[in-house]
Amino acid sequence: MVFKRLLGSPGAGGPTVDTVLEPGPVRPGGTLAGQVRLVGGGAALDVEQLTLALVARIENGNGGSGGNQVPAVLFERFTLGGGFRLGEGETRTVPFGVTLPWETPVTELDGRDLGVRLGVRTELEVAGARDSGDGLDPLGVGPLPAQEAILEAFQRLGYGLRSAGLEHGRIGGTGQRLPFHQEIGLTPAPPYADRVREIELTFLTHPGGIDVVLEADKRGAVPDSDEYPGHDALSRFTVGHDDTRDWTTEVDGWVRELVEHREAYGSDSAYGHDAPHGRQAEG
């Protein structure tokens, strides 16, 4: 797929920048490969820096459930080259292979678009001026094997996918590095439908594995009341990127532990959110 950038106004004779990504989704921690094709304009110029930026569109509000959209948030930038002269009409190709951050959100599952908007932006800095193009070109990210297996286990157990948005803030008590995290909202399976409103799932991936953070919203509580201090119960479990387990049994045990913890200790939690609607980790 080709993403075209024209620097300068039409007819101004500026250089053309086309970014071509290898087809197919990339996985978190995987290699995003492609090439940037530069074509010189009506005059030679000195390219000081060529950069690839990764950005995310984040909703105001809980997850991806219809809040007002905010400007794109930069979460990684890669320098691809620079320090060369691009002649008049000259064609130059700059290949690249960059590693996605481990915490990069998943945008699709089994070919289904989850509604998460990630983008690639090509930036060309010429004589101290940077042109960032006119918008974002989509970046597709698929799940790691363990992420996919866990989501499939939830589906087998009767949970439904409600949302998969991005949320500002960090989850306390974790090693989260990005300024946002992905929340996958699941409607509860029949055994828990009368006790919880929603299960929220977050994958915090790192080189050593995946921290699976589960959060249960209490059914019947009034938001922002003493009974409902943001979100009321969280649990964290760590798995490997390629772990093979009886995931149906494993996931069912996680949810049972989460719900029983909430019922035994009320809204006590080992983790919390730095986001405005949440609370910090205790102790």
Rank of each mutant, 00 (worst) to 15 (best):
F3C: 07
L6T: 12
G11I: 12
G13F: 12
P15L: 15
T16N: 09
V17C: 07
D18F: 05
R27G: 05
P28F: 00
V36Q: 03
V39P: 04
G42P: 03
G42H: 10
A43G: 09
E48F: 03
E48A: 10
V55L: 14
I58Q: 02
E59D: 12
N60E: 15
N62C: 13
S65F: 13
P71C: 01
R77L: 07
L80F: 00
L80R: 03
G82C: 04
G83R: 00
E88N: 11
G89D: 05
R92L: 07
F96N: 02
G97Q: 12
L100V: 06
E103F: 00
P105Q: 05
V106L: 11
E108W: 02
D110V: 13
G119F: 04
T122Q: 01
E123L: 10
E123D: 11
E123W: 05
V126Y: 02
V126M: 08
A127G: 05
G128R: 02
R130G: 06
S132Y: 07
G140H: 12
P143A: 00
L144R: 00
L144P: 04
P145K: 12
A146Q: 02
I150E: 04
L151G: 02
A153T: 01
F154H: 03
R156H: 15
G158A: 09
G158D: 06
Y159L: 00
G160W: 11
L161M: 13
A164T: 08
G165M: 04
I171P: 03
I171T: 00
I171G: 01
G175S: 13
L178S: 01
G185D: 05
T187G: 06
P188H: 11
P191G: 00
Y192S: 05
A193C: 10
V196A: 04
E198N: 06
L201H: 04
T202P: 03
L204W: 04
G209K: 03
D211E: 13
L214T: 04
K218E: 06
R219A: 15
A221N: 07
A221I: 08
V222M: 14
E227Y: 07
Y228V: 09
H231C: 11
A233G: 06
L234F: 08
R236W: 01
R236M: 10
V239H: 04
H241T: 02
D243I: 05
W247F: 14
T249M: 10
G253Q: 07
R256T: 15
R256F: 13
R256V: 12
V259P: 03
E260M: 09
H261V: 06
A264R: 15
A264I: 10
D268W: 14
S269Y: 05
Y271L: 15
P276V: 13
P276C: 12
A281P: 00
